[in-house]
């Protein structure tokens, strides 16, 4: 892959987060929510979208303020910005559904320490224009959501015999309880990493 000094198109900024630099499957960032709240497809999707929203808003603000914030206090100000949007998201989710808020629990507040968001702010938004930062945030955010959904779907299908709470097997399906337990998150993540690594090695060979 040759990124150096090549002309980076705006679609590229968007696409890279979805596949080539997928935050979960390639960069292995933000493992805490990935493993903890991907037990059902619904939780995974909600968590992914919440993170994507925080990522988008913080990227915008960081990019806007990039010439205004002195270098010495940049990390502190990024954290402040991220924390603000996490709190806003927390209220918003509560207002959408108390049930959903309960099942995501403390992990909404923990988006603050999701290193994906801080790394995008530091590595991208603080050096690029708003337009690019938005594209980058959208790509990374949706890539994160996609990865979480992949995990959540597998775990819900095996662990509960359903997808988005709709049963997909006939009566009497034996659910694999381990899949909705934290251990199942590790198994599923390992499985996806295995598949994606195998695909990329094959691609590199050919």
């Amino acid at each position: 892959m040759s990124d150096d000094k090549q002309k980076v198109t705006s679609t590229d900024e968007f696409i890279k987060g979805l596949w080539r630099d997928n935050p979960v499957f390639v960069q292995v960032l933000g493992m805490c929510p990935t493993l903890a709240v991907s037990n059902t497809a619904e939780n995974a999707l909600a968590m992914g979208l919440a993170t994507a929203f925080v990522l988008l808003m913080s990227n915008i603000l960081v990019s806007l303020l990039r010439n205004f914030v002195p270098k010495q206090v940049r990390i502190a100000s990024y954290i402040l910005i991220i924390a603000t949007f996490v709190t806003v998201t927390d209220y918003a989710i509560q207002a959408i559904s108390v049930e959903l808020h309960k099942s995501l629990g403390a992990f909404i507040s923990l988006i603050v320490v999701n290193c994906l968001i801080l790394s995008r702010a530091e590595a991208f938004a603080s050096k690029n224009t708003i337009g690019k930062s938005i594209l980058d945030a959208l790509g990374m955010g949706l890539g994160f959501t996609l990865a979480l959904f992949c995990l959540g779907a597998v775990r819900e299908i095996l662990g509960n015999g359903s997808i988005f709470n709709m049963p997909i097997f006939s009566e009497g399906f034996q659910s694999w309880i381990v899949m909705i337990l934290p251990a199942g998150g590790f198994f599923t993540l390992a499985l996806w990493l295995l598949i994606i690594n195998a695909l990329q090695t094959r691609k590199a060979k050919s």
Binding site: Q174, W176, I177, V178, M179, L181, A183
Partner: peptide, 8 residues
């Protein structure tokens, strides 16, 4: 252990 966690 995996069986115990999966099919308790």
């Amino acid at each position: 252990a995996v069986l115990q966690a999966a099919f308790p």
